[in-house]
């Protein structure tokens, strides 16, 4: 009977010692990157604490029973080891304070659907990805145009949006805002394809000058200088084509004298009007 009592007592002591040893270091209840993290320890005497984690490998003498304070800047999972016993704990990213904003493309035609894309990656002040859902505001505005504004909730540290380009050409301010932090990108909105392309002809001493009206897109934005306009003259003698660049909003070409000819105009895939010169139809 007494032997059983001794054995039981021994088992209880062994278990108590095991539990005490296992509890040498405990995980902090809540840890945020950039703040001091406090690891409670238990027991007595000195021991070596090892901490492994993102950007971190610490070997430190500690007094058991004290709280050990560590400045941990990186978010992620850590392992703390004392006397061969390990606890794991997570350090969360702090509030977002840094935005990586990708805006594409840098130039885009005006008045097109879903052509401007913005992607935001959210980081805290120690460059940890902030994975908790966070509201992100996207604003797109061209001076004198209709502003667009959208709210998106980030997911796993990323927020993404697609926007239409505005009707008005010009440098668009594309802004992503998280809390009080804003980042701006500029997207150049250019005139779209020409709209209502029209030509008229006037005789000159060597033949004919064919000239467009001011070339604009359907929203009334002037098509940029340098855009090529093709003027084609078709007569019973054959066909001749001139590629003229828009200069100060107008494209112009000098043609030889023509008899019974049709002159047409095009820019890219857009066709303009036709005129008949030199008599006949």
């Amino acid at each position: 009977m007494r032997i059983i009592q001794y054995a039981l007592m021994l088992a209880i002591c062994w278990f108590a010692a095991y539990v005490a040893r296992a509890a040498d270091v405990q995980a902090p209840s809540h840890a945020v990157a950039g703040n001091d993290v406090s690891l409670p320890t238990s027991g007595s005497g000195n021991a070596t604490l090892f901490v492994f984690g993102p950007g971190t490998a610490i070997k430190k003498e500690v007094r058991l029973g004290d709280h050990v304070t560590l400045p941990l800047k990186r978010a992620g999972r850590y392992s703390a080891i004392v006397n061969g016993e390990q606890v794991q704990f997570d350090v969360a990213a702090a509030a977002p304070s840094d935005i990586a904003f990708l805006a594409r493309p840098s130039r885009v035609p005006a008045d097109r659907k879903d052509v401007i894309a913005g992607t935001v990656f959210l980081f805290d002040n120690n460059h940890n990805l902030v994975t908790s859902p966070t509201p992100v505001k996207f604003d797109l505005m061209v001076e004198g145009g209709q502003p667009q504004s959208r709210h998106v909730q980030s997911k796993d540290g990323v927020a993404y949006i697609k926007l239409d380009s505005g009707r008005k050409a010009g440098p668009a301010q594309f802004v992503a805002t998280v809390g009080a932090k804003s980042v701006k990108r500029v997207v150049e909105e250019t005139a779209s394809d020409p709209c209502n392309l029209r030509i008229h002809a006037t005789p000159n001493k060597d033949g004919l000058t064919v000239e467009t009206d001011p070339v604009k897109d359907c929203a009334g934005n002037p098509v940029p200088d340098g855009t090529i306009v093709t003027i084609t003259a078709t007569s019973p003698k054959g066909r001749s084509t001139v590629d003229a660049r828009i200069k100060k909003g107008i494209a112009k070409a000098d043609l030889p004298p023509l008899q019974n000819a049709t002159v047409s105009v095009a820019a890219g895939v857009v066709m303009g009007n036709e005129i008949h010169v030199g008599g006949g139809m």
């Binding site: 090892f50 492994f52 610490i58 070997k59």
Partner: peptide
């Protein structure tokens, strides 16, 4: 940066993973 920090700290303390 994070991994280089970890390697440097491991080196200084004679630790490995």
């Amino acid at each position: 940066d994070e991994l280089k920090d970890r390697v440097n700290q491991q080196q200084q303390s004679g630790l490995h993973t």
